[in-house]
Amino acid sequence: MDSGTLDFIVGHLNYWLFILLMMTGLYIVVAKGNLVKKIVGLNIFQTSVFMLYISIGKVTGGTAPIFPLDMKVDPDVVYSNPLPHVLILTAIVVGIATTSLGLALIIRIREEYHTIEEDQIAEVENAVLKSEQWASEQAAGEHS
């Protein structure tokens, strides 16, 4: 491996981590049948995006973007970009709301279905679907 490639890999470390986390999260959402685990996956997925945003706010050699009290800003001091962090603060709030709503839904689902496994829920729903179909076929039969 030449040094250029290595530089590319190391230099984009935050992106690699972002991609890794994102894929992990998405995989859990898709592959796991347990509804709570899906929410966990969703959280990892969202967190990866938070990481991406926060890491792009980093300015090499930059310090925390806090102005001195006397407001005498030294032009030589480099500040990190605070805007992505602020954005992500909003996104985190949204993420928490989503998670809590998801969990609340899971509790209601458990009360109604007595399970939080996707395949068992599907079984119950299929049974309902079959009975509905039967009812509509019966009704249609009476009319033809």
Partner: peptide, 18 residues
């Protein structure tokens, strides 16, 4: 089934929004 419908929409909607 409204519950599972809402749950599935939540998962897909959140992925979309993200």
């Amino acid at each position: 089934r409204a519950l599972t419908a809402a749950y599935n929409y939540l998962i897909m909607g959140t992925i979309g929004a993200t």
